[in-house]
Simulated scan of single mutants.
Amino acid sequence: MSTYAIIDTGSEQLQVEPGRFYDVRYFASLKSEILAPNTKILIYRVLLIRHESAINLGHPWVKDAIVRGRILHPSFGDRITIYKKHSKKKKRRKLGYRQDLVRFVVDSICLNGKEL
């Protein structure tokens, strides 16, 4: 774990490493019809980069930092069941949904135009 970055995407922060894949809720800048497999993405909202012993911390984002990746496929999350019950009123309601996710793989982390 010598090189990693912390990015802000899908209203959450992820610690990403090159060569690994991650599931995120959505990419704010991409619409659902653009999320085809092998679509290349660039993430500029990089909060922190660690390369060996050097740490670059952004305020709020690191300047000239890019996380390059590509989309593998859209997917669904685990099924979430919501069950509401009002006792003594004989009122029950059961709902469920699955979150839309996008699986992407991180190809490289770049800082000042150089790949780390």
Score class of each variant (00 low, 15 high):
I49Y: 06
I71A: 01
V67C: 03
W61T: 15
I55R: 07
S53V: 12
W61S: 14
G77H: 04
T81P: 01
R70L: 03
I109H: 10
D78H: 06
S108F: 03
S108R: 05
L35C: 10
I71N: 02
K31N: 12
D64P: 00
A36L: 14
K85Y: 11
T81Q: 04
K85W: 01
G96W: 04
Y97C: 11
K85M: 12
V62I: 13
R68F: 05
T81F: 01
L47F: 07
I66S: 04
H86Q: 07
I82N: 02
E33C: 01
R93T: 12
H73F: 13
G58D: 10
A36W: 02
N56H: 13
N56R: 15
C110I: 15
V62N: 11
D100A: 08
R70H: 14
V102P: 10
G58H: 14
T39M: 02
H51L: 09
V67P: 04
R93S: 12
I71L: 01
C110G: 01
Y97P: 02
H59W: 04
R92E: 12
A65P: 12
P60V: 08
H73Q: 14
K40A: 08
L111N: 03
R92P: 01
D107M: 09
R70S: 10
E33Q: 01
H51E: 13
F104Y: 05
K40W: 05
I41R: 01
I66Y: 10
I66E: 01
D100K: 11
I49D: 08
K84S: 03
H51C: 06
V67F: 00
D107A: 09
F76Y: 12
L111K: 15
K31R: 13
R50N: 07
H59L: 03
V105R: 07
R45V: 03
A54R: 13
R68N: 02
S32G: 00
T81N: 05
I80L: 08
I109M: 14
V102I: 15
A36E: 10
P60A: 12
I109V: 12
S87M: 02
